[in-house]
């Protein structure tokens, strides 16, 4: 009897800490950043930080669903590089026929979306229907996409035709009311993701599948369909992120998107989503992404600490986040 009475109150306390933890960390980072450098809070710097975090952020929202449903996707970074390469190749190939202009941009966008959907479907198919471990499948596809983009670029760089670059540039650099498109798209994806996770049947089902797939199956949830959809959505979001990314540099190379998968997974975990699945928080992921890019930004703006220590600091933060997460598990 005592067990049932004491447990909920203790759980509630730690949940509060878990909710506040990432927000507090973000607030502390903002204060530290502002104190160290006057330019930190300038509109230009904030736009820069948010735009750069948009790629990882859009992918991390999709990753939140995959991890919540008990899965994992290591292939997203290579997938982004491959889709970027493909998008550039298709646009360059169609250029003589269509000429530079928005119709061709839409062809490029369509390419990215279709390729992302297919890539997500392949991962999902191998994991659900063929029942191979998500880690193995996506480790495999990670290597495949990375190798394909290297092969397509012949070890060098795939560059978008120069005329096209000026047409496509505004997708990254322009926006509405001074807010750039990547930030707007990231915000939209995050809001929709948060709504789906908290209020739609799909989010509830994903959490149920990640929590205990047997219970989900016995509750008439189509477990394979839910898992498959999380990978397809992630693939689509990788496509969206690539559409935002290509205009920035107008090129893709074998080093495009390297370690994006780890940054996305790290953001998800820092945000309070459980790595073993069953519980996910999209807004937490957004905060996780912001924390990671703020650390990078602050180190670049200040002289005290070398920016080369970025990875080390991020690593410490990820491990701290997981320690916090473990506390909750041990109790329940």
């Amino acid at each position: 009897m005592t067990a049932t009475e004491t447990q909920p109150s203790r759980a509630a306390k730690s949940v509060n800490l878990k909710v506040l933890g990432p927000i507090l960390a973000l607030v502390v980072l903002v204060i530290v950043g502002a104190a160290l450098n006057g330019n930190f809070l300038s509109a230009a710097n904030i736009t820069n930080v948010l735009s750069r975090s948009a790629f990882i952020g859009i992918i991390a929202v999709g990753m939140t669903f995959v991890i919540t449903a008990g899965g994992l996707d290591l292939s997203v970074g290579s997938m982004a590089a491959f889709i970027a390469g493909l998008m550039i190749l298709v646009m360059n190939a169609m250029l003589p026929a269509m000429g530079p202009g928005w119709p061709l941009v839409f062809v490029g966008m369509l390419t990215a979306m279709v390729a992302g959907t297919l890539a997500g479907f392949v991962n999902g198919f191998l994991i659900t229907t063929m029942r191979i471990e998500a880690f193995i499948v996506t480790l495999g596809t990670m290597g495949i996409y990375r190798s394909l983009v290297t092969w397509l670029a012949d070890g060098g760089t795939l560059s978008l035709d120069f005329g096209m670059r000026s047409v496509i540039r505004p997708i990254y650099f322009d926006g509405i009311l001074g807010i750039s498109w990547p930030i707007i798209v990231f915000a939209l994806v995050a809001i929709i993701g948060e709504l789906v996770m908290r209020r739609a049947a799909f989010g509830r089902h994903a959490a149920a599948v990640g929590s205990n797939d047997q219970v989900a199956r016995y509750s008439s949830v189509n477990v394979n369909r839910v898992r498959m959809l999380t990978y397809v959505f992630l693939g689509i979001l990788v496509g969206v992120a690539t559409i935002m990314y290509v205009p920035r540099l107008g090129s893709a190379s074998p080093s495009t998107g390297v370690l994006w998968e780890l940054e996305a997974i790290a953001a998800v975990i820092i945000g309070g989503t459980m790595l073993k699945g069953g519980f996910g928080r999209v807004w937490g992921t957004v905060i996780g992404v912001l924390i990671l890019s703020l650390i990078d930004n602050i180190l670049n703006l200040t002289d005290g600490v070398s920016p080369y220590l970025n990875g080390a600091i991020q690593g410490v933060i990820i491990i701290l986040a997981v320690i916090l997460q473990r506390d909750k598990k041990a109790e329940s």
Partner: peptide, 29 residues
């Protein structure tokens, strides 16, 4: 093992099987 999600609250468990009845685009909390 197969009936209830032990890590979730009563509400999520109660409506899991009949979730479409509670959903019209969004779940009606």
């Amino acid at each position: 093992g197969r009936g209830l999600l032990l890590q979730k609250g009563m509400r999520e468990n109660l409506t899991l099987q009949a979730l479409p009845e509670f959903t019209n685009w969004l779940i009606d909390h």
